[in-house]
Every structure is written in structure tokens, then in C-alpha cells.
């Protein structure tokens, strides 16, 4: 699937694009099973909420005490889906199609996120993420860089969120 580039105002302030789909899973298991799962997945699973880990193109974001979001290349989806079978009590559910992920980058990215997010995004360290709310819509936010974020929302909310991001980006470009 190719990246869909939307007609956001390409101001110097902030740009918004939709990331192409790779493969995304929701992984649930108890702390006691974490090490076994790490070995099976070839990926460390951070034990603090909001932390991420990366290895070999696979990435984990801890969203809850027993919950991780796994992002892997599309080609590895089947391998990951079967990686934990047998032995480890867990739930591993593919959610690639559940979500649309926006990439928000540029000096205005913090301002743009602040049109809809009540928490202080500035305090989110680079390389960390959180499930939060954007204008009433549940979203998972990851700070990829100082001025670079991904914001993932469920698919049916995407057009609403995208339109608000576009409106906000236009407002920020005006510098009012």
C-alpha cells in the first residue's frame, strides 16, 4: 500500500501525512510471560507504560501494564502472528486495519497537537508514546523526534481527525 499524501497546507509550520500500513498487533500478556515473549518475538518488551523498544525493524510500545502495540514490517506479519503459539498465555491480535496513523512534523507540531490534546505533549519525551484523546477521539501518540509525532486513531474517526488537523495546520500557518 502506498502512502496517501493528503492536501494539507505544506506550510513551513507543520505538515501532516498519512503513513502507509505495515503490520500492527495488540499484544497482551502477564509480566511473568514477558521474557519468554521477548525471546519468541526477538524484541524487548518495555515494562514501563509509554516506553518503546526497537529491534530488527520491529517495534514495541507499552500502552498498559499488560499491553503492547507491536509495529512490524508487513512482510513479517505472518511470522509475528504465529510467534507466540504454544506455551505462553497471551492474546496477540492483528489490528493493522483498525487504525490510521498520521505523521505530524514541523516546528508547529506541538501547537497542532494542542488543538485537541489536553495533556502537556511537551513533556512527552522523544521515543515515548501514550494513549490519549484528541478532540474526544481516542488516539495513540508517539513522539518520534522533537518536532515529529505519529498519531494513530481508529479508522472510522480518521476523516474527522484529519479535517481538524488540516484546519489547525491552516490556522498555525497564518501565524495569528
Amino acid at each position: 500500500m502506498t502512502a496517501q499524501i493528503h492536501s494539507f497546507p505544506r506550510s513551513t509550520a507543520v505538515a501532516v501525512t498519512v503513513l502507509p500500513l505495515e503490520a500492527r498487533f495488540s499484544l497482551r500478556l502477564r509480566a511473568a510471560s514477558r521474557e519468554a515473549a521477548e525471546a519468541a518475538l526477538g524484541l524487548p518488551l518495555p515494562d514501563r507504560i509509554g516506553r518503546t523498544s526497537e529491534q530488527g525493524g520491529r517495534r514495541a510500545l507499552c500502552l498498559g501494564p499488560d499491553e503492547w502495540r507491536l509495529d512490524v514490517p508487513a512482510a513479517e506479519a505472518a511470522a509475528v502472528a504465529g510467534a507466540l503459539e504454544g506455551g505462553i498465555p497471551h492474546a496477540l491480535v492483528e489490528v493493522t486495519d483498525r487504525e490510521v496513523t498520521f505523521l505530524i512534523e514541523g516546528p508547529g507540531s506541538l501547537d497542532l497537537l494542542a488543538i485537541g490534546i489536553a495533556r502537556d505533549v511537551r513533556r512527552l519525551e522523544v521515543g515515548r508514546g501514550a494513549r490519549t484523546v484528541f478532540d474526544g477521539v481516542q488516539a495513540v501518540l508517539v513522539r518520534e523526534g522533537e518536532e515529529r509525532f505519529t498519531l494513530a486513531v481508529w479508522r472510522s474517526y480518521a476523516s474527522h481527525v484529519e479535517e481538524l488537523l488540516r484546519q489547525g495546520a491552516r490556522e498555525i500557518a497564518l501565524g495569528l
Binding site: G50, A118, R131, T132, V133, G136
Partner: peptide
């Protein structure tokens, strides 16, 4: 809008998350 401390996240966060 209240601020609420989540004992699992160990963060104080705005009410719409709760």
C-alpha cells in the same frame, strides 16, 4: 477539567482520559 493521577501510569493527566 480535573487532573487525575493514574497509579498505573504514575502520571497526573487530564480528566478526558478517564
Amino acid at each position: 477539567m480535573l487532573l487525575i493521577h493514574c497509579p498505573y501510569c504514575d502520571e497526573t493527566l487530564p480528566e478526558p482520559e478517564f
